[in-house]
Design a protein around this nucleic acid. Structure first.
Lengths: 127, 127
DNA sequence: CGGAATCCGCGCGGATACTG
DNA sequence: CAGTATCCGCGCGGATTCCG
């Protein structure tokens, strides 16, 4: 086939399910979905709550998630434009899972941190 | 060090918890942990089960997860060297969550796919 | 306010080859 | 079998600017 000069056919491309897994296995996706799990939010509210995300990544993440049916984007044409983002039922079901992952990270952070120092000091001494 | 003229202080660096979230929000991490959730596995078994992962990424992922206390690496010095990887209790608790995410991706794939086509055709007509 | 567009560095990750 | 090492392309993502 047309793999003459191009051999870039990785697992991500071959399996459609892995594509989706790769998409939701994204830091910004986790944070956005977790942020919206408590209710609808405006664009700048999300930017403030996530705190550190660039407008580019925020918009990009939101667009992708909207396209995937995870959330909806509703524009209110007021004097300053107001845009609200809200999880769909599909997105809510995902939010439950990703929030659990996020909670796990927060809960077990120090345990992981301890394991890291143990790994680093153990065997790496006497250079 | 060498951060003299660098202004790259993103959310990932600022919040340690987000570092961990970013780490486990990785496609390979999901696949490896999910693969090991059914029991211990050897290196090449993992490579075959995940199917598409390069040795580099597999080793890199395994090393990182070992360092983080998610899994253990045990070497059996037989004639051909045998290395087994097994989830720690900490890793098992994570595996439950990540497997759920992986299952979600497989279950809702076609729904997401349908949402995508709807998004693409809707508004993108008559070029 | 809520984006879109552009530039660009850096590192992720695939391919390949070699070691113990 | 289980890695390690090297090269390198590509796209993620931060910074900046401008528009509706």
């Amino acid at each position: 086939m047309a793999a003459s000069s191009r051999a870039y056919v990785s697992a991500t491309r071959s399996c459609p399910t892995n594509q989706l897994l790769d998409r939701i296995s994204d830091k910004w996706v986790s944070l956005v979905v977790a942020a919206l799990s408590t209710g609808p939010m405006r664009y700048s509210d999300l930017g403030r709550k996530i705190a550190g995300v660039s407008p580019k990544m925020l918009t990009q993440t939101l667009r992708t998630l909207e396209r995937d049916g995870i959330l909806t984007r509703s524009v209110t044409p007021s004097v300053p434009v107001r845009v609200d983002y809200e999880l769909t039922p599909l997105g809510s079901s995902l939010a439950t899972l990703l929030t659990a992952v996020k909670d796990w990270a927060e809960t077990n952070f120090d345990e992981v941190h301890a394991a890291r120092e143990r790994y680093d000091t153990d065997g790496q001494d006497t250079p």
